[in-house]
């Protein structure tokens, strides 16, 4: 039964993806400038003929609706097209940069959960204490601080002043590790190269912390408020009246219930994590998808932008589906 429902939900995502595809296509064409013009603009040696030829190769000479048709039919075949500026298939570029982005996102997600949820629980249990007030003040700062600024401040403190952590890249450029998974932390462990592992962790820390800050802050606040609500419930008093130790009352009875709204927010925050990585990757010179797409936008590299955005959308939709499935385990009252 559950499998059938999951399949149904997956099928629902098709029209959503289609709408996103059309939107991103149209918006890219609205942006002033043309990829070929931008590419050729600085080179006066290019002849009009070459430009025509290039435009023809990427179908830019055809009317917009034909271009849209070509884009959509290729998309259905699973073909994201070829990057105009790099001349390589988009899927290739995504495959190349994806591990870096996933590694960073997973690290940020883990940090966000590990920081945010305990803070929320402690804040709720110690409601209105100085500890609660301090942590909520910090989390408010975390929400309001733009990540490019936080990233720069962290670089300024930990890299420039204290010289503790590197500020750019994924690993010390003198170190070579054989590529297996594309996650440098895992690959270095697989290669048994301890030095590389430490180096990749040190490179990962600052960008992951920057990316996780807004996530941790939101999770802390949501967890706190849902804990406060749960703690007022009869079943919490009843658990105490049963003689359940206070620690278990909080960590078992209350937290399990308070996680339900928190997981919803977590699902939505995965989207924010994707958006945030474009900025963070650029600040920290992290060679991931975020940096790829920002460059592509500046170059008006239509196929590349479209491809990456489609990929983002797919990830986002899947994350939400995953949350919905997770839900059914957390809350027995909910069915898919």
């Amino acid at each position: 039964m559950r499998e059938a429902k999951v399949l149904k939900r997956v099928l629902y995502t098709i029209p959503i993806m289609l709408a996103i595809a059309i939107t991103v296509f149209v918006f890219m064409r609205f942006t002033p400038g043309d990829p070929v013009d931008i590419m050729m603009g600085k080179e006066s040696m290019v002849s009009q003929q070459d430009i025509e030829l290039l435009k023809k190769e990427f179908n830019l000479d055809k009317p917009i609706y034909t271009q849209l048709y070509i884009f959509l039919t290729n998309l259905l075949k699973g073909d994201l097209g070829k990057s105009i500026t790099k001349g390589v298939p988009v899927i290739e570029l995504i495959r190349e940069t994806l591990p870096a982005t996933i590694e960073l996102a997973l690290a940020a997600l883990t940090l966000g959960i590990l920081i945010g949820i305990p803070i929320g629980i402690i804040s709720a249990v110690k409601q209105n204490s100085w500890l609660d007030r301090t942590m909520m003040a910090i989390s408010f700062t975390g929400i309001s601080m733009p990540s490019f600024w936080l990233g720069l401040i962290l670089i300024l403190i930990f890299s420039a002043k204290l010289n503790l952590l590197p500020s750019q890249g994924r690993i010390n450029f003198l170190i070579y590790i054989p590529k297996v998974t594309g996650f440098y932390t895992i690959d270095s462990l697989l290669a048994g190269d301890w030095e590389a592992f430490v180096s990749s962790l040190r490179h990962l820390f600052l960008p992951a912390l920057t990316l996780s800050a807004p996530l941790a802050a939101v999770l802390a606040r949501v967890m706190r408020s849902s804990m406060l609500e749960v703690l007022r419930n009869d079943y919490v008093v009843f658990a105490r009246a049963k003689g359940v130790p206070e620690k278990l009352v909080i960590l078992k009875h209350a937290v399990r219930n308070a996680l339900i709204p928190t997981v919803t927010v977590l699902g939505m925050e995965v989207g924010a994590l994707l958006g945030g990585n474009m900025i963070v990757e650029n600040v920290f010179g992290w060679p991931g998808i975020g940096r790829l797409v920002v460059t592509a936008i500046f170059d008006r590299d239509y196929p590349l932008v479209q491809g990456v955005v489609m990929f983002y959308a797919f990830t986002f939709v899947m994350a939400n589906l995953l949350v919905d499935i997770l839900y059914t385990y957390l809350d027995p009252k909910i069915e898919l």
Partner: peptide, 13 residues
């Protein structure tokens, strides 16, 4: 102790 409203006394999860 037993409580007034059984609907809210048992932990739903």
């Amino acid at each position: 102790m037993i409580f007034q409203d059984p609907m809210t006394t048992l932990n739903p999860v």
